[in-house]
């Protein structure tokens, strides 16, 4: 971000998103650059999680900010700038996924959830805290691999709710899903990830108990 230098406003106050959006609308390139540097890491991570591809994620990152810049006048300001950005990034990511799997439609409307209860095969306590047991890099690798094992309809909901920390309502709006659909997919995703992580993090020697 060497080309964009504006970090703070007068008196050293950091500009909030709304102020930066207004400045950017007025043609201040530095203001938009600052919004980019504020959110590029999160948008890139979101795109990598949904598309499971670094090159697609790079395209999504670029398209997201280009579209945001282009449509800045259309941003209503009744949602948070970040939520608006996430909506653009999610749409771009899903387009990438659909393109890649043109033989099989990837749809978030598709109820991949067949109503069956997720199986609980791993019921074991964890060995201490994963943050203490693994290096940041190892832990990141484990967490990302676990997410990639989920179906897109589930991982997208999980990533928005529990990684990007959007509310249930914001997630429903971003994905054009009903609130009950978001909730049921989130539950399913959380339980599946719990299952996958328990296989790795469980106490050594702990018996694997069959659930129910």
């Amino acid at each position: 971000m060497a080309d964009f230098v504006m970090e703070t406003g007068e008196g050293g106050n950091v500009f909030d998103d709304t102020a930066l959006v207004n400045l950017a609308r007025g043609g201040d390139a530095n203001a938009f650059g600052h919004l980019v540097s504020r959110y590029e890491r999160k948008i890139y991570r979101l795109a990598r999680h949904i598309t499971d591809s670094e090159s697609d994620a790079e395209d999504v990152l670029q398209e997201t900010f280009l579209k945001a810049y282009e449509h800045l006048d259309g941003f209503q300001g009744n949602s948070k700038f970040y939520t608006w950005l996430v909506r653009i990034a999610v749409n771009e990511s899903l387009m990438k996924l659909r393109k890649r799997r043109s033989d099989r439609t990837v749809s978030l409307d598709e109820p991949s959830d067949n109503g069956e209860e997720p199986m609980m095969r791993e019921v074991a306590v964890w060995e201490g805290s994963p943050e203490e047991q693994y290096s940041n890099e190892e832990l990141r690798g484990i967490l990302e691999k676990a997410i990639q094992g989920l179906k897109p309809a589930f991982r997208t909901v999980f990533v928005l709710r529990d990684v990007e920390e959007l509310s249930t309502e914001e997630t429903a709006t971003a994905l054009d899903l009903s609130i009950p659909a978001v909730k049921s997919r989130l539950l399913r995703a959380r339980l599946e990830l719990r299952e996958r992580l328990t296989r790795i993090f469980k106490q050594k020697g702990e018996d694997v108990l069959a659930y129910l």
Binding site: E40, A124, S129, L143, V163, L191, R194, L197, F201
Partner: peptide, 22 residues
């Protein structure tokens, strides 16, 4: 209890993950 505890930890560990630099 175990499922609840490990689900809570699952969510926490993801929330604690800092995004990497681009």
């Amino acid at each position: 209890w175990v499922i609840c505890d490990t689900s809570k930890k699952t969510i926490q560990v993801y929330k604690g993950m800092e995004p990497q630099n681009v």
